[in-house]
Design a protein around this nucleic acid. Structure first.
Lengths: 335, 335
DNA sequence: ACCGTTTACGGGAACGTTTCCGGTAATGAT
DNA sequence: ATCATTACCGGAAACGTTCCCGTAAACGGT
């Protein structure tokens, strides 16, 4: 691994290091003729500028970092792909880290990214969500950063979010319209803004239809959590006629348990999920769910970040709200 | 973003830069007393050694790179998590890149990783698989690298793979035992070793049971591909009584199309997949599939890499074959 | 012919570390 | 008391770039 350096190609051509550097950064102060010569022989010698050294002197890396809480479900990978699309096109490379829903590793990830001098960060918070101070410092120190999906209220940064309130409203209303009056909401982690919003949408739909607001049970974003809650409901003999879960995995876990215990879906219990995991349309019965524009979320976040870097200084954080749709499927259909 | 540097803490304590550096690295040549003082005030000042500068001088990064062809399905994320578990524990950070099944971006990813001086690489090849020469050069230049899952024969590197032959054999035999004599194999991308192995397992099972080997149709690792192939079979009126797909998404895509066209699963067509995506047990009907020890694959690859780095030089590439199991579910059950 | 301006390039400092090479004071042996 | 050894620490080069500054040549105008 002996990298050929800029000096090697300089001495080979009997030019100065500066000239070679200029050829690669195609600035002024170089004759196109020599520039092409340099570029040509550099290629022959297999020379590529060392980005480490470049980062050190320029204090920037042409890298962006994306930090997500998990990527076993397809949601985050899809967002990442969207962000990559626009970032790669602009000549940036994208570093991905996952914090495994742990605030601690999330913080380590952030440190690693900062230490590696990424030019900006795209992050979705973990459920634990204990690093807000850290992020405030980061933002204060002018690190460009945009949050998506998992955001909190009081961070002065750009955010791209989904209109959770609205779509939770629609999802709930869909159940109410079918005649359900006993809907249980499996709400998300309580310190996430999106949980609050979805919960409020749930409430609003009830109010509109003048039906007492249903029960709410905290439930994490995993199948296991959904299973746990469903089991609990069965055990306590408090099974409702419908469930609106704040996540698809939660909905699917619950559905599995109910099915296993002899409940018919949607006849005995109607179920609606949220987030449109790739599972939704393939499970039995197909799951009604709110789909989010994953790729679009990633793209928008990336664009926001680029914009923020361009307008450095005179920039105001903005929040972009994206639209979705409710995919009605068998799991919530009136029989 | 004004990093406090080593100089800042040195001048604050009226010691030399070397001393501070020693406090952070070596144990010799420094009094434990001063070492602790340095460490303490460094922490107070919020100083962290700049890894960029360190990389530049040391020519190593304490970073490892993982390159996967995609991560929309849960297979690769799970492998990554496994690898991270062991690598993080050893003090390394893990950089992840996805090549989107494109050899070109795969190559760019490799370049980025190398340029960023990762100490080693864990990679699973794209289907296109056109960078073998590139990898040969890399290996020749002594870059530690281990391949997994998507490997090719003639790369002199460590590999951790799955016994595709064996499990394809079992999966096929499972169908044969149920009395199927007309099984179509949706084979994977042809330049991947695993495709060949699964295909040969398919053959072997037929031979053992003295039944003519069934048809084979090339089929990519995506639902769309599965749908395409299934549609084609229906159109040509060549629908078999059973299908053994080399991937779960392929199997699921096909299943969807068959169901949509009125075929009953498993009554009209039995289906077996491969890879145990998280979908398998939740779709309708639940999909029989070969499950791979994803996390274990990641861990093993990581360990192999660490080992290779420790025994630098006197190291021989080894291939580790991991075991799996066949999860028999409704999609292939005799009715 | 003279002077200012432009063009093209070289020299060298700087980025933040690590690490080798010395040097000084303290320690131990003789 | 002298000398060799040890324990700590400082100075400075090096890693591979970028970029500011300086300057020689070429050029144009008077």
């Amino acid at each position: 691994m002996k990298h050929t350096t800029i000096k090697d190609v300089a001495s080979k051509l009997n030019v100065s290091v500066s000239t070679v550097s200029r050829a690669f950064n195609d600035k002024y102060d170089i004759r196109t003729e020599t520039k092409e010569l340099v570029l040509k022989t550099a290629k022959e010698m297999g020379y590529r500028p060392n980005p480490i050294a470049r980062k050190l002197i320029q204090q920037r890396s042409l890298n962006f970092g994306i930090i997500v809480p998990e990527f076993v479900n397809s949601f985050f990978p899809e967002v990442i792909i969207g962000a990559q699309e626009v970032l790669l096109a602009e000549g940036y490379q994208v570093l991905i880290m996952q914090s495994n829903e742990s605030s601690e590793t999330e913080m380590k990830n952030v440190d690693t990214m900062v230490d590696n001098m990424v030019d900006g960060l795209i992050v979705s918070l973990t459920c634990e969500n204990e690093n807000i101070e850290k992020y405030k410092e980061l933002i204060a120190s002018e690190m460009p950063i945009v949050f998506f999906n998992r955001v909190v209220d009081d961070l002065p940064a750009s955010k791209v979010v989904f209109d959770d309130y609205k779509w939770a409203f629609f999802a709930t209303e869909h159940l109410l319209v079918q005649g359900h009056t006993d809907i249980v909401h499996l709400s998300g982690p309580k310190n996430l803004l999106l949980s609050k919003n979805r919960s409020q949408g749930f409430d609003a739909a009830h109010r509109k239809h003048k039906i007492p607001v249903g029960r709410k049970i905290p439930c994490g974003f995993s199948m296991e959590e959904g299973e746990r809650v469903a089991l609990d409901l069965i055990k306590k003999d408090e099974v409702p006629t419908a469930i609106f879960a704040a996540s698809d995995p939660g909905a699917i876990g619950a559905m599995k348990v109910f099915k296993d215990h002899g409940y018919a879906i949607p006849k005995d219990i109607a179920i609606v999920g949220f987030s449109e995991s790739s599972l939704a349309e393939h499970i039995a019965p197909p799951l009604t769910s709110v789909s989010q524009p994953t790729r679009d979320i990633g793209q928008t976040a990336a664009k926001l970040l680029l914009e923020q870097i361009d307008t450095k200084g005179l920039f105001v954080p903005q929040t972009i709200v994206l639209n979705g749709r409710l995919n009605v499927r068998e799991s919530s259909m009136k029989v």
